[in-house]
Design a protein around this nucleic acid. Structure first.
Lengths: 181, 181
DNA sequence: CAATTACGCTACTTGAAGTATCGATACTAT
DNA sequence: ATAGTATCGATACTTCAAGTAGCGTAATTG
């Protein structure tokens, strides 16, 4: 059995920091949600945050992984699985702070290969693998599916500041079902 | 006829600054393409840049408007018009610096309403209006089309650092044609 | 020539990411 | 108990980039 290493154990504040991250991003936006403010909102020191996550981008990514959790792959047949997955991610991106955090870290990742690696490995890959398995589609096809769904939702959020309406999510579901159904 | 106002006229360096912007973003990435560096690459002072564009985001947006130019709406029927438009924007986003600049300013806009306004008005609206007219579709439908196409292309670029392959652009064209055809 | 406006240059302010250090605290191992 | 170790909060710091201010100079119009 794994004996605990010596030294003071970490306090269990991860969940508190994640909650503070989302609410701070929701209130102030990604750019103004500084690590200083997030730490203050969580009631910890900034140095504690940097001890656990190496950068703001890594913090946000971990926060998103926690916020998303596993995909609920409910549904009997392929179309209903696909549809529920799309509606699930659309709902998540519409949650307060989640979409803004996602778009923000995505921004940072575009020209930061290290962060892109984190984002791809920690956030996208788990879902890609589960979807490949559930849908029995090749990797390229699943990656294309993720590009379409997530890209569309984030573009709408970025351009309008608002999550996509249910009507348009329905249209997205219909379009993807036609292509991948 | 418009008589010239008094005072020293502006030197015609807009095109030079735009070229310097794209090449600097291409070389260093959006984050490291500071206004200082862009100005230096263009051979002008930083203050000159700020006299013409109020912010880095506005500069990038203007640069993109210039780089994109008008949509070539070639093609006899609706499907070929749609397909050529999609392939055109995919090609533009794949040009050196253009995609990175687009992704950078786009994601900056998510939490900056003023920049979002600029981006929406100066960049998206002209194309939206032309497309509404050419395709005879309602605004909501055209906006959805833009979300899907541009969102997908940018998500791929952001996640991988590389523009979308021709194979996947073909898949995108096929999918959109099915939905809007 | 006077007025006006843009230019380059330098210096500055502001804000945020990330680092360094230190005394205090909470554990494990002997 | 006591030594060793690793975390904590707090403060100060470095670095970098966006954006601003002021000034002397250059290019125009009238």
């Amino acid at each position: 059995m794994p004996t605990r290493p010596p030294g003071r154990p970490r306090s269990g504040v991860d969940a508190t920091v994640f909650a503070a991250t989302l609410s701070t991003v929701h209130e102030l936006g990604y750019a103004h949600a500084t690590v200083d403010r997030i730490a203050a909102a969580a009631g910890v020191a900034k140095t504690t945050v940097y001890r656990r996550w190496p950068s703001k981008g890594a913090l946000i990514t971990a926060c998103l992984v926690d916020a998303f959790g596993p995909v609920p792959l409910t549904g009997a047949d392929r179309p209903s699985v696909l549809a529920s997955a799309i509606r699930w991610i659309a709902g998540k991106i519409g949650e307060p702070g989640v979409g803004a955090a996602f778009a923000g870290v995505f921004t940072d990742a575009v020209n930061d290969p290290a962060l892109r690696q984190i984002l791809s490995t920690r956030l996208q890959d788990p879902y890609r693998i589960v979807l490949q398995d559930a849908l029995d589609e090749p990797e390229q096809r699943v990656l294309f599916f993720i590009d379409v769904v997530v890209g569309t939702l984030l573009h709408r959020l970025g351009m309008t500041g608002e999550p996509m309406t249910d009507d348009d999510v329905d249209a997205l579901v219909a379009m993807v079902l036609h292509a991948l159904g």
